[in-house]
Design a protein around this nucleic acid. Structure first.
Lengths: 221, 221
DNA sequence: AAACGGCGTGTTGTGCACAACCCTGACGGG
DNA sequence: CCCGTCAGGGTTGTGCACAACACGCCGTTT
């Protein structure tokens, strides 16, 4: 059982970030599937705080559209309908392309090494497919891709959209063939690593764009 | 003196929206210039609430990057440095273009009428230029443009970015020639109205894109 | 005169108690 | 049998008091 005890010497801002990230992760990894009712008191107890700081984290999640609170009822994990998902995916696709054109970072050996580590992780996953590990790898890889642009605003917007749709994707994995999805994703990782090898972040962005587009098409089917 | 008294029969969500919008407007209209220290207690008193609901609104503003709170010091209205502004403008420009391609709305007579009302307001402003009225018109026109796409995610992202940079623009107006700026903006309004007349939202988006680009260049000078 | 230390004031952060509210289920009347 | 009513439990929203913190002022010391 994962315990998230408090951290005595922790700054208020750091704690907010921690609570927010943990809760967001749980929502997007479907530990809290859409429709789940989160109660403030038990959550606060789990994190070793009172309701007040917890509510600050919930407020951010609500502004991000991941939960919705109703007075007297509870805070419910939101769901995403197909129409909204389609538009969000469209925008995500466009932003991914922008990442290659707007302030791409300089490719360092560290970046190349990280790209290849993702390929290794992808291959390991292909040997023993697991939905949750798949989701985690996908999330990590998203952050890797976001770090390829220096445009802070673009990163922030992409991240918002990603976390908004990540759940839908994981929820549909069961409908699709997990092995196929893993193989497709591994291809994306390999192609990206090759592009990064050639210091071509525009290509990396286009690859990502293409895969987002194809992924959305598979989800829609 | 503008009084913002409470509204007895008001829902919590509606009040949050109201407080947030008012404060955001004040920040972006430079009623609270960058560096201003906002105090929670007086603000809460002005809005007829306690600190708790006010803090909820401030939390959203902080997540949007418009203010920054420091324990024991105060909540300070943020400033935007030139480098960040440049990247944000880049992204705004791209998103404006996207608005013409991603789910544009159907052009109705109402939309056309509104476009022409903006032209009328612009002409009135050109006769008696005023920085604050200029800013207000610009803000209203932005919302008009955002309403031209049905892509909710795109609207939200654009709005975030707009309010993030609106201050910089108004702050620089004094450096530039107000009359020139008003005339340029009037041109944008007229061109947009013409595009809308022809039911061509793609053109409207491209016009906006061009003007954002030129505006950024003037700011940078 | 300059440097240092402590204290007072003002600010945001936290915890707690209570208000406002919604849902469920039982109960009674039609 | 059905429907309306009401009470109870559980949840989020609010207000308030206090803790934690930063900064400037002033007296003291060197």
């Amino acid at each position: 059982m994962p315990v998230s005890e408090g951290n005595p010497g922790e700054d208020a801002r750091a704690r907010l970030q921690r609570l927010h990230d943990i809760l967001r992760s749980r929502i997007c990894l479907l530990d809290y599937p859409p429709g789940t009712r989160l109660s403030e008191e038990p959550l606060a107890a789990e994190f070793g705080t009172s309701r007040t700081p917890l509510r600050r984290a919930l407020a951010r999640l609500e502004d991000e559209g991941l939960i919705q609170t109703q007075h007297g009822v509870g805070t419910i994990v939101t769901d995403v309908d197909l129409a909204e998902m389609g538009r969000t995916y469209e925008l995500r696709r466009e932003l991914a392309g922008l990442a290659g054109r707007l302030s791409p970072v300089a490719v360092t050996p560290d970046i190349i090494a990280r790209a290849h580590r993702f390929v290794a992780r992808g291959r390991a996953l292909a040997r023993t497919p697991d939905p949750r590990e798949f989701a985690r790898l996908n999330m990590d890889f998203f952050h890797f891709g976001a770090a390829l642009t220096e445009n802070e605003a673009l990163r922030e917007a992409s991240e918002r959209l990603y976390y908004r749709t990540a759940r839908i994707w994981l929820k549909s994995i069961s409908r699709l063939d997990l092995g196929d999805e893993v193989r497709i994703f591994l291809t994306e990782l390999e192609q990206t690593a090759a592009a990064v090898d050639g210091h071509d972040l525009l290509a990396a962005a286009l690859i990502r764009q293409a895969h987002i587009s194809m992924c959305e098409a598979r989800l829609r089917a």
